[in-house]
Amino acid sequence: MRVGVPIFLFLAAAGFHTALTASLESAEKEDTFVGLEQLSELQKRDQEEFEAAQMSEAVQDENTEEENDTQEEDMTDRDGNVEADQHESESDEDVDGMRQKREHLEANVEEADETTNLGSPRLPG
């Protein structure tokens, strides 16, 4: 019996060691699994934040493009108004020139009428 007790103690210690090792490995695997779940959740959050940031940038880019388009339209309208003003100014100059020509012609016609009236006898009326 003396030989059986040390063997029994040895087998009990080996079994305890194996059970303890298995328990620790199980806990490590569980921690690793929980860690992976947490990591997965963090990655999902990061991905969502990244997508939100991209959407925000896209919206800002669209707003910037709209502002640029609006500015370009304003510039085009302003240029069109300047051209229209220049055209009106040219038209006004043309009208003024035509008016001066007409006045000059009327003055010449009146002078011719006066000259013709002076040279011809007036008929009593």
Rank of each mutant, 00 (worst) to 15 (best):
R2C: 01
G4T: 11
V5A: 09
I7N: 01
F8G: 02
L9Q: 05
F10M: 08
A13P: 00
A14C: 08
G15M: 08
G15K: 05
H17V: 10
H17N: 09
T18Q: 12
L20K: 10
T21Q: 14
A22E: 13
L24E: 14
A27D: 15
A27Q: 15
E30P: 02
T32A: 15
F33I: 04
F33L: 13
F33H: 09
L36A: 04
E37Y: 00
E37I: 08
L39T: 01
Q43N: 13
Q47V: 03
E48I: 06
E48A: 11
A52T: 03
A53C: 02
Q54L: 12
M55S: 12
E57S: 04
E57M: 04
A58G: 01
Q60W: 00
Q60S: 11
D61Y: 06
E62K: 07
N63L: 15
E67L: 15
D69F: 07
D69V: 02
E72F: 06
E73W: 07
D74Y: 11
M75S: 00
T76C: 00
R78S: 12
G80N: 14
A84I: 01
D85G: 05
H87F: 00
H87A: 13
E90C: 00
E90A: 10
S91Q: 13
S91V: 08
D92N: 11
G97W: 04
G97Q: 07
M98G: 00
R99T: 15
K101G: 05
E103H: 04
L105E: 14
L105A: 09
N108K: 13
E110V: 03
E111G: 03
A112D: 12
D113R: 07
T115M: 01
G119R: 08
S120K: 07
P121S: 10
P124F: 04
G125Y: 11
